[in-house]
């Protein structure tokens, strides 16, 4: 489940990066790109939660869920807030950096 979550989140990271590249060049983000990002990230986090509930391992990755929860704040503001491109860029950057940090944190456990 840990590995599944990592793979799902990795796909999410790639699409997130694509979306951000569009945004940073003041282009409209294609719907497919951000939708795939959203779905993958949600599935990834769900997989992490299932892992935390099911595992007998001492390490349950709660800290990663906390980091993602923090990333959720700017994430939701992008999704539902009605703001200009400039603000969206800034929010996306904050969201991306926190989210990426959380993903790396997970990766430090998964990689050999």
């Amino acid at each position: 489940m840990e590995i599944t979550a990592t793979i799902l989140l990795f796909i999410g990271v790639i699409f997130g990066f694509m979306a951000f590249t569009h945004l940073s060049m003041n282009m409209k983000v294609p719907k497919m790109t951000w939708m795939i990002h959203l779905i993958m990230v949600i599935l990834g986090v769900v997989a992490l939660i299932i892992y935390a509930l099911a595992t007998e391992n001492v390490e349950k990755h709660y800290n990663i869920l906390v980091i993602f929860a923090i990333a959720l704040i700017p994430g939701l503001l992008i999704l539902f807030g009605k703001r200009g491109t400039g603000t969206k860029k800034a929010l996306a950057m904050v969201y991306g950096l926190i989210g990426l940090f959380g993903f790396f944190w997970l990766l430090t456990y998964v990689l050999p």
Binding site: L100, F101, F104, W105, L107, T108
Partner: peptide, 8 residues
């Protein structure tokens, strides 16, 4: 890669 390295 560098982000991961520094996070690690």
């Amino acid at each position: 890669v560098l982000g991961f390295g520094l996070t690690n």
